Simulated scan of single mutants.
Amino acid sequence: MLIDLEKLPVDIVPHMRDGEKEVHLKKWSDGPVKVLQGKLPAGASIGLHTHETNCEVIYILSGTGKVLCDGAYEPLVPGACHYCPKGHAHSLINDSDGDLTFFAVVPEQ
Rank of each mutant, 00 (worst) to 15 (best):
M1N: 14
M1Q: 11
M1Y: 11
M1P: 12
M1S: 11
I3Y: 06
I3P: 04
D4I: 05
D4T: 03
D4N: 14
L5V: 11
K7D: 07
L8D: 04
L8R: 13
P9E: 12
V10D: 06
D11M: 05
I12R: 15
V13S: 01
V13W: 05
P14R: 12
P14G: 12
H15W: 03
M16G: 00
R17L: 12
R17I: 00
R17K: 13
E20T: 09
K21Q: 06
K21I: 01
L25D: 05
K27F: 02
W28T: 05
S29Q: 15
S29M: 11
S29H: 10
G31F: 02
P32Y: 10
P32M: 12
V33E: 08
K34F: 04
V35H: 02
V35Q: 02
Q37I: 08
Q37W: 08
G38S: 12
G38K: 10
K39A: 03
P41M: 10
G43W: 08
G43T: 02
A44E: 10
A44N: 07
G47H: 13
L48F: 12
H49Y: 03
T50Q: 14
T50D: 07
T50Y: 01
E52I: 07
E52Q: 13
N54D: 15
C55R: 10
C55L: 11
E56V: 03
V57Y: 10
V57I: 14
V57P: 00
I58Q: 02
I58F: 08
Y59S: 13
Y59E: 13
I60S: 05
L61M: 13
S62M: 04
G65F: 01
C69E: 11
G71E: 07
G71C: 07
E74R: 14
E74W: 10
P75Y: 06
L76A: 15
P78Y: 08
G79R: 12
G79L: 08
A80G: 04
A80N: 05
C81H: 00
C84T: 09
K86L: 09
G87W: 09
G87F: 08
G87C: 06
H88D: 04
A89R: 15
H90A: 08
H90S: 09
S91D: 03
S91C: 15
I93E: 14
I93T: 07
N94Q: 05
N94G: 04
D95R: 07
S96N: 07
D97N: 13
D99W: 04
D99R: 06
T101F: 02
F102Q: 08
F103P: 05
A104W: 00
V105R: 01
V106C: 13
V106N: 10
V106M: 05
P107I: 01
Q109H: 06
